[in-house]
Design a protein around this nucleic acid. Structure first.
Length: 877
RNA sequence: GAGUCAUUAGCUCAGUUGGUUUAGAGCGCUGCCUUGACAGGGCAGAGGUCACUGGUUCGAGUCCAGUAUGACUCACCA
């Protein structure tokens, strides 16, 4: 045999990817066809391919490849985002390892290093996507910080500022002391941890008594400016209007009363640190309290803290505790579970901090975006994500978009004294400024030091990748895009904001549909993550099972929105599937054609049956794709190819060993096989392209990737049902062979008790020939009653049997028949009950009633057949 | 605290406006099969009172209510 009996994916996959690239199949330009466009959710430029990416991008590739085969102008735009915090952290770390401190560099010098890093490592993930088979239009690769995208970001900022949607304000923010930047609420992840509740004595100013407060963060007492109690708390009534001394710093602060305090919690008394807690900040504002900022930007104690200056906050906590013990003010340390927020990017514990930042007034923008989803103008799959979306949109908060970093688009705001001038360029800002201060020079204006949040770039992505802020030809053609494929975990961070931006700048939605993928989890249902180390190496998987195998594995078990419990076994199943297809090819290719051989009649039936079946598969695939039931569609294809094509069809038409095949069957089989390749190509592009290349002939000029998706032809349900009957008889014969140790290839005679089905079988030469071939019979005969020493089975409603040379175990056979009889009797009773119900017969649709009648008739026929068998067996006891 | 979703075979899941031979698939399991496309294989088989309790209906895995268990999201948490 020339070709290997095992399919080796690695040898074949790179060959075809190169071939597709060389032919420019992935590239799209606007033309007269209808567009089908997808923008990739841009992975972090720092990222490497993980399971989530594989799932997400496989799905996009499936949709794009299918659209391409359907004759649409398919365009899948790839790219990466600049991930300001993550990238800056990586670059800072790299520099530190080289002995360079960020603080020793100018902004420009630092950015040079960062771009250098990006050029060197930033394309890794895109290269990995190619291994997966992603048919992205690489000529369109975009980056959120390249010139076109940056221009859009700046334009959007200026536009919003001019519309009064932006403002700058001092607010309590989530501060990442490691990255030394602000984070938006969405970038903070809360996790319950075991901490302590410290009970601390605060002495009254006159020393006569004390209040005990409870806190999880004793170190913040350095910044306390009050103690709060509930106005109705009887225990503390005598403290109203008094003052206490804050331990360690010995500051006298008021006891305030406020019903914010929960009497039940802790000791009922609360220390108030307005600079370092969001609720305390509100209390402070309400009661006019002093705001003492005791932390530096890196989380160490500032001069204002007076004690432990320069110590890190966690070290300070220990030091404060020790001091309190020494001062005998620590009453108790109670173990306590509570939530602690950490930075999504650096994992540092987030510090609430007062800070001046830029905000987007989201309430001014949300209305059209909320309406679009409510009305299904933008459709969500699965639908219930609408609820989540609505909840967030209705309760939307302002979006903090400035970040204290260098890697990103610098805020285009220019300051002179207390004035701010916002413009796309420094010159523009100067012109504006000069209207107020005519003598102002460029160097008098100072640009904002901060950059914009990466999501402020990403939310423009569907517009900016098509250069949409310049009314390009591309945006006219490709926008709105067809579908967005992403994880539900970024519905707020990204999806919602893109819809908002779409309406704001393009007057319409950015994508017609959103398909939310599930989360990839491990066998223990844990989310796959780097820190847990439970994520398999994506490229190693591709190495092991082939990209097609991995794509199959990811997709075969991933309903929209549902979790996917990843198991390598699924990829193995995928690889085995490629092997099965490969061997089907070997079989078909190995058939010698004898051009003057006539076609066996059963092959005509086989071809008609499989053609009709193929059409019904095409129909159901279309429907499943419409509903984004991609996993189900794949399972259907799997059993269509493996069971229907390989196990049944090929066995039906296969010539006996050593014999040649007729030309008509061979050509038709090759044609059907090519159709399989086309249908399966979106899921498993490499094997199908390879097989297609072997099945090609002079009349076929295209590659599988561009092969036209088959158009639905008429389905003949009758031929499918009738073939199913033959198949069930064949299985029945095989079962009898199994049970009675008759060799699969020992010829035998099959008898059928006369009825309309068996008569049909014996009279229709095609059916009879097919049954004879598949069951390995030498004859099929009709009789009117069972013969001596026979074993039987029932298929459909009819009874079949074979005669045995050897004696059978009658008791065993009897037990089996009786069990089956019992089942049938139960079945009949159920149907009879239904039919006996007058209201059913009157109310149910005619077809349903008719079907019940047929069920009953078939059931009764089976029962009769079984009873006869039992009687016959008993007579032999 | 508010909300969303789930509960079907040993495991992972389908089951599409309530009716399609008293529930399907894959994996796993059991038995048999090896010169023949494929052991990364073939054939066959066993395995489920559809979480529980009520209700609506001629008819419920499917619709409604309640209960239990689990998962997730948002908010709060000194």
């Amino acid at each position: 045999m020339e070709i290997s009996s095992q399919y080796i994916a690695s040898e074949i996959e790179s060959k075809w990817y190169q071939h597709w690239m060389d032919n420019g199949y992935f590239h799209s330009e606007p033309d007269e066809r209808s567009p089908f466009s997808i923008v990739i959710p841009p992975p972090n430029v720092t990222g490497v391919l993980h399971m989530g990416h594989m799932l997400n991008n496989t799905i996009q590739d499936i949709l794009i490849r299918r659209a391409r085969q359907k004759g649409l102008n398919a365009c899948w735009v790839p790219g990466t985002d600049h991930a300001s915090i993550a990238t800056e952290a990586k670059v800072v770390k790299m520099l530190r390892e080289e002995g360079v401190k960020k603080s020793d560099l100018t902004r420009d010098e630092f950015l040079n290093h960062a771009w250098g890093w990006k050029d060197k490592y930033g394309g890794i993930i895109l290269e990995q996507l190619k291994k997966l088979g992603a048919s992205c239009d690489w000529e369109r690769t975009a980056f959120t910080m390249d010139d076109t995208r940056s221009e859009g970001v700046i334009k959007a900022f200026v536009d919003l500022y001019n519309k009064d949607v932006l403002y700058r304000g001092k607010r309590m923010v989530n501060w990442d002391p490691q990255a030394q930047t602000v984070l938006s609420n969405e970038e903070v992840l809360y996790k319950e941890v075991q901490g302590n509740l410290y009970h601390i004595k605060y002495m009254l100013e006159d020393g006569s008594d004390f209040l005990t407060i409870a806190t999880t963060r004793p170190e913040t007492l350095l910044g306390d400016s009050a103690v709060a109690i509930h106005p109705d708390d009887e225990r503390f009534k005598h403290f109203h209007g008094k003052r206490v001394i804050v331990p360690i710093v010995n500051r006298s602060v008021p006891i305030i009363v406020d019903d914010y305090v929960d009497i039940e919690f802790g000791t009922g008394a609360l220390k108030v640190t307005p600079a370092h807690d969001i609720n305390d900040y509100d209390l402070g504002k309400k009661h006019n309290l002093e705001v003492i900022e005791i932390f530096n930007d890196d989380g160490s104690i500032s001069e204002a803290g007076q004690f432990f200056v320069g110590e890190d906050r966690f070290k300070a906590r220990k030091l404060v505790k020790a001091q309190l013990e020494e001062d005998e003010l620590l009453v108790e340390v109670e173990p306590y579970r509570h939530n602690v927020g950490r930075s999504e990017r650096t994992n540092a514990v987030v510090e609430p901090k007062l800070s001046l930042q830029w905000y987007v007034n989201m309430k001014m923008l949300v209305d059209p975006a909320l309406e679009a989803v409510e009305s299904d103008t933008v459709e969500f799959f699965p639908k219930n994500m609408k609820n989540t979306y609505r909840h967030w949109m209705v309760n939307i908060r302002d979006w903090c978009i400035s970040r204290q970093l260098w890697w990103g688009q610098r805020v285009p705001a220019y300051y002179y004294k207390d004035d701010v001038f916002v413009s796309e360029s420094p010159e523009g800002a100067l012109t504006k400024a000069q209207q107020k201060y005519p003598d102002l020079k460029q160097e008098d204006l100072k640009q904002d030091e901060d950059v914009l949040d990466t999501w402020f770039s990403s939310w423009l992505w569907p517009i900016s990748v098509f250069d949409g802020f310049n009314n390009s030809k591309d945006i006219e053609y490709y926008y709105p895009t067809s579908v967005l494929v992403t994880g539900w975990d970024i519905i707020f961070l990204w999806v919602a904001r893109m819809i908002i931006a779409g309406y704001e700048w393009k007057g319409t939605f950015p994508f017609k549909q959103v398909y939310f993928t599930g989360m990839v989890r491990d066998q223990k249902r844990r989310k796959m993550s780097k820190s847990l180390g439970n994520s398999p190496d994506a490229l190693a998987l591709i190495e092991k099972f082939g990209a097609d195998g991995v794509r199959f594995g990811m997709l075969s078990c991933s309903p929209a929105g549902g979790d996917l419990l990843f198991d390598e076994k699924l990829c193995e199943q995928g690889r085995n599937f490629t092997n099965k297809i490969w061997n089907a090819l070997r079989l078909v290719q190995g058939w010698e054609v004898e051009s003057n051989k006539t076609q066996p009649i059963e092959n005509e039936l086989a071809i008609d049956w499989f053609t009709s079946l193929s059409n019904s598969i095409i129909e159901s695939l279309d429907k499943k794709f419409e509903e984004y039931r991609l996993s189900e569609a794949l399972i259907d294809l799997y059993s269509y190819v493996w069971t229907d094509f390989c196990s049944w069809y090929l066995e039906m038409v296969k010539p006996p060993y050593g014999e040649a095949i007729d030309i008509y069957t061979k050509e038709k089989t090759v044609e059907l096989f090519r159709c399989i390749c086309t249908l399966l190509h979106p899921y498993m592009p490499f094997i199908t392209e390879e097989v297609w290349s072997h099945l090609k002939n002079e009349t076929i000029s295209t590659d599988c990737i561009l092969s036209q998706y088959p158009i639905l032809d008429v389905v003949d349900p009758q031929i499918i049902t009738e073939t199913d009957i033959i198949k069930s008889i064949v299985s029945g014969v095989r079962d009898l062979r199994n049970k009675h140790q008759i060799k699969p290839k020992e010829k035998l005679t099959l008898f059928g008790i006369e009825d309309n089905i068996t008569n049909e079988l014996v009279q229709d030469p095609k059916k009879k020939a097919m049954l004879t071939k598949l069951s390995f019979l030498d004859e099929f005969e009709i009789v009117d009653s069972e013969l001596e020493n026979a074993v039987s089975f029932i298929a459909g409603k009819s009874k079949f049997f074979i005669q045995l040379k050897q004696e059978i175990n009658i008791e065993e056979a009897l037990a089996e028949k009786e069990k089956e009889l019992k089942y049938q009797e139960g079945f009949i009773i159920g149907v009879q009950k239904k039919l006996a119900n007058e209201r059913f017969v009157q109310n149910a649709p005619e077809a349903v009633v008719a079907n019940e009648k047929k069920k009953l008739a078939d059931g009764l026929s089976r029962k009769k057949n079984l009873e006869q068998s039992i009687e016959e067996l008993k007579s032999r006891l």
